[in-house]
Amino acid sequence: MTWKGFFEGIQSFAESVLFAPYDALRLGVDSWWVSNVVSWILVLIGFVAFFYWMKQLSIFNASGEEDRSQTSHSFLGKN
């Protein structure tokens, strides 16, 4: 076995096994817009989750349950 054969084996494994899920996502289309629908859906889900999380943080902040004193940790209270 040569080094060339070793690296070609790694290449073959990566192309046929590791990248198989990405090949399945291509859906066999040539249009850029159709190919990237999954990416746009994931970006949309990310934005919705971000705004939901920010809303929940503002509700929690408005309830006043959090201890906001600087002496919550000993290293913050020292002057």
Rank of each mutant, 00 (worst) to 15 (best):
N79H: 13
S35G: 14
I41C: 11
Q56A: 08
V17L: 11
F51W: 03
F51I: 03
D30S: 10
S12G: 04
F19W: 04
E65P: 00
V43R: 07
G9C: 06
A62W: 06
S63R: 15
W3A: 01
W40T: 06
E15M: 09
K55G: 08
M54A: 06
N61M: 10
W33V: 08
L57I: 07
V34W: 04
I59V: 08
V34A: 13
F13I: 03
F6G: 00
L44M: 10
W33N: 15
N79I: 13
A62V: 12
T71C: 12
A20R: 12
F6T: 00
F60G: 08
Q70E: 13
S16D: 10
T2W: 01
S39K: 10
V37F: 02
K78T: 15
F7H: 02
V17A: 06
P21F: 01
K4P: 00
G9I: 02
S12C: 07
L27C: 05
Y22T: 02
D23K: 14
M1T: 10
D30C: 03
A14V: 11
K78I: 15
R26A: 13
F19I: 04
F51G: 03
R26Q: 14
I10N: 02
I41W: 04
Q11C: 09
A20W: 05
R26D: 13
V17H: 03
L44R: 07
L27E: 07
L42H: 02
F47V: 06
Y52M: 04
A14Q: 09
T71A: 06
L27I: 05
L44G: 10
M1R: 12
R68A: 02
S12Q: 08
L25P: 00
N36I: 02
Q11R: 15
Y52T: 06
N79F: 13
F51Q: 03
W33I: 06
K4C: 07
H73C: 11
